[in-house]
């Protein structure tokens, strides 16, 4: 899923400083699962912003809303009747949400309340880790299910580099060297010889290097 963190209240308050009424809209998709933009987080943000405004002696009307998904126009359309009642709309979805909203309602102001960070999963309660870089050309089968693109700081196709020490990456003691894991897993499974094959340089044109991407499935288009 897409993982994000909520922006600081200071940043959000600055975005809406001229607003007297706002709509906060959450998303039931990824951001609900990673506890950053679901119903509860919408309520907490709304309450925090009201406290901030009351402290300044100013009023703000806040409407709370939750959409099924903010990455599908059909759900965005549900806001058609209400979206213009407010000075601005705060989206608690990933970066896709405010953009789809802005495209659907070009005269309204939309602000992102979330910093979208990466594709990942939960490794414990309240802990999410990156597992995919969306490179557009998956290679994890070559590395026993461990992705060097997203999990190696240098995205090395042939590793480890000289910065690997005691299973950790040189950039931080909190970062595991995924190449250390790959080598150990290959050794455990008796397939270390796989790593003698030099992997060719990765074609990054399927990644962000190829510019904004699009996926079209003819069988589904209308």
């Amino acid at each position: 899923m897409i993982i994000g963190d909520r922006k600081s209240l200071t940043e959000i308050l600055d975005m809406i400083k001229d607003c007297r009424s706002i709509l906060i809209t959450g998303c039931k998709g990824c951001v609900t699962v990673c506890n950053v933009g679901g119903l509860k987080e919408v309520q907490v943000l709304a309450s925090s912003l009201k406290i901030a405004r009351k402290k300044e002696g100013k009023s703000i009307a806040i409407e709370e809303n939750l959409l099924e998904r903010q990455c599908d126009p059909e759900y965005i359309a549900e806001l058609a009747d209400v979206v213009h009642r407010y000075d601005a709309v705060l989206s608690m979805a990933c970066g896709v949400g405010p953009q789809f909203l802005a495209e659907a309602y070009p005269t309204q102001k939309f602000f992102p309340a979330i910093n979208t960070k990466f594709f990942g999963g939960a490794t414990g309660h309240g802990v999410w880790e990156e597992r995919c870089a969306g490179c557009g050309s998956c290679v994890i089968h070559n590395y026993d299910g461990l992705c060097p693109v997203s999990r190696c700081s240098k995205s090395l196709m042939n590793g480890p580099c000289g910065g690997s020490a005691n299973g950790l990456c040189e950039i931080s003691k909190d970062v595991v060297c995924i190449w250390d894991r790959i080598v150990k897993k290959k050794m455990e499974q008796g397939r270390l010889a796989d790593l003698l094959t030099v992997m060719p340089a990765k074609d990054w044109s399927t990644s962000r290097d190829g510019g904004p991407r699009k996926s079209i499935r003819e069988e589904l288009t209308q």
Binding site: K40, Q43, V44, S47, S48, K50, I51, K54
Partner: peptide
């Protein structure tokens, strides 16, 4: 108890 309950009391 939820974060929201505590904030709501303050609010």
């Amino acid at each position: 108890v939820d974060i929201f309950h505590l904030l709501k009391a303050i609010e």
